[in-house]
């Protein structure tokens, strides 16, 4: 079975700093990583392959340097990597991104076999919209399974899949027909270390690189900034709070006395709270 995992390269946001005067992102020297949520999708795909046989292809749309993330995915054990890269994709919003990725997925189907399962992560850590997965599903007519916690059953011959999906207030057990798009929930597995063999292979592997034209895209008006209905109007810093914190004095007091004054201060901030608590502790 051929499985494709969509992965985005993102800046390691823990290390992003905003310039205090100009409010611009200081990207210089900020390392990039595979979107952490996508590793759960990758691991799930690798497990299915190990169990059922077949291949895992990883797909990224991004600048040429995104090759680095793809190579990393190969070290985890992916069999093939495709980088969709073209200046026409610059400035894509989620609608334009799903257009480009859907085109690349169709091309992957032609070249390397149609995948019954396409995986994405739950969301990214930079754009953080969770919109690209549903976008791809809609464009390719794949049955959409989001927030999947577990693939309970998969029968490639019968073309059926059963999953546990995280819903509001509970878990939905859904069954549907292949082909599907699965967005994988976080924390449901742990990415493997990858073998030494995979590391060697990854270092030597050729990454498949496609431009928009290579992916069969003819309508460039649907790509990048031009194909994006959303427009970023302005970027600005949140307003700092004017009011300063009130520090409860802690010098030379016992812990018990401090606790008493913290409680008193809390009731001072929230005069109604004391009565409400009293009612709560008195029970109904």
């Amino acid at each position: 079975m051929h499985i494709v995992v969509c992965m985005k390269q993102v800046p390691d946001s823990a290390q992003i700093r905003v310039h205090p005067v100009t409010n611009t992102i200081m990207r210089q020297g900020v390392p990039t990583i595979i979107n952490p949520y996508d590793l759960f999708a990758l691991e799930e795909a690798l497990r299915l392959r190990d169990r059922l046989g077949g291949e895992v292809t990883v797909l990224t749309m991004g600048p040429p340097m995104a090759e680095e993330s793809l190579r990393k995915a190969l070290t985890f054990g992916a069999d093939r990597a495709v980088l969709l890269t073209d200046r026409f994709f610059a400035g894509s919003d989620t609608l334009a991104t799903s257009f480009a990725l859907a085109a690349a997925l169709a091309k992957i189907g032609q070249e390397f076999g149609v995948p019954p399962i396409v995986f994405t992560g739950k969301q990214t850590i930079d754009g953080d919209t969770a919109q690209v997965g549903p976008g791809i599903a809609k464009r390719l007519g794949l049955n959409q399974l989001t927030y999947v916690a577990k693939i309970a059953d998969l029968d490639p011959t019968a073309g059926t899949i059963t999953v546990e999906r995280r819903a509001e207030g509970g878990v939905q057990v859904l069954s549907t027909r292949l082909p599907v798009l699965v967005t994988m929930l976080e924390g449901v597995n742990e990415i493997r270390r990858g073998s030494l063999d995979d590391a060697y292979r990854a270092a030597r592997a050729t990454i498949v690189k496609w431009t928009a034209a290579d992916a069969g895209i003819t309508d460039l008006g649907k790509c990048g900034l031009r194909g994006s209905p959303t427009i970023v109007k302005k970027v600005f810093a949140p307003q700092a709070r004017a009011e300063k914190v009130r520090q409860v004095p802690t010098a030379d007091v016992s812990t018990e006395a401090l606790a008493a004054s913290v409680m008193a201060e809390i009731f001072k901030c929230q005069p109604a709270l004391e009565g409400e608590l009293m009612r709560f502790s008195a029970g109904p």
Binding site: V18, K233, V235, A237, P238
Partner: peptide, 8 residues
């Protein structure tokens, strides 16, 4: 750390 205003 930043806010952005987006329009359609």
């Amino acid at each position: 750390s930043l806010l952005c205003t987006i329009m359609t």
